[in-house]
Amino acid sequence: MSDANPLLRFDYLVDQRAAIVAAVLEHLELTVATVALGLLLAALLAGVALRWRWLRPTISAGTAALYTIPSVALFALLVPSTGLSRSTALIPLVAYTLVVLVSAILDGFDQVPRPVEEAAEALGLTPRRRVLRVRIPLALPVIISGLRVATVTTVGLVTLAAIVGQGGLGRLILDGLRRAFWTPLTVGAVLSIVLALLLDAAFVLLERRLAPWAVRRTARP
């Protein structure tokens, strides 16, 4: 038995390499689309929360509540209205990134030191310049670490999007489970784990590049 159905059969890997590559690309595509849309929406929500302060608790609580909805439930709930389409996967995926991204943006802006903002204003920088040159750059490290968490989480959730017929590597996993044929399952699971870890590491590097002052600061004793 174990010979016929080992955890990994190399001939399958060779035969199916095109399909595997396609699955990885689809997985990445869905992840990138999710995080990009999530960032856009989160920026809007954070902008609203910063502009109208009294809305902030509502927005924070709302995005947090979305996050507590079980992923299986959120994917499934949309099936009756959007069918087994890409939107059915995208909507919940984007919704899950919001809690991390909105709070990262707000935290990022919060931790811009008050004296720095005050100095920027007092020296005569325009409101636009203050946002673009001072607040956003200083919020960037926190926002990037939010993006990191959101991206990595999304890679994991995209695997689950297979239950509504989407999401690259997850389909290999479900396919393997359905057929009790372990090779696609192993390939799908291992690759999605590797993908998550690689993206995680990539963000660490990105953070170092984009916020050298913060890295130098933490590097000091």
Partner: peptide
């Protein structure tokens, strides 16, 4: 205009408020 006014006036604060990313 307040921006023009401030650009013509130096300002120093207690906490210095240097831009840490520059």
């Amino acid at each position: 205009d307040p921006i023009a006014l401030r650009l013509g006036i130096g300002y120093v604060i207690q906490a210095v408020g240097l831009f840490p990313h520059r």
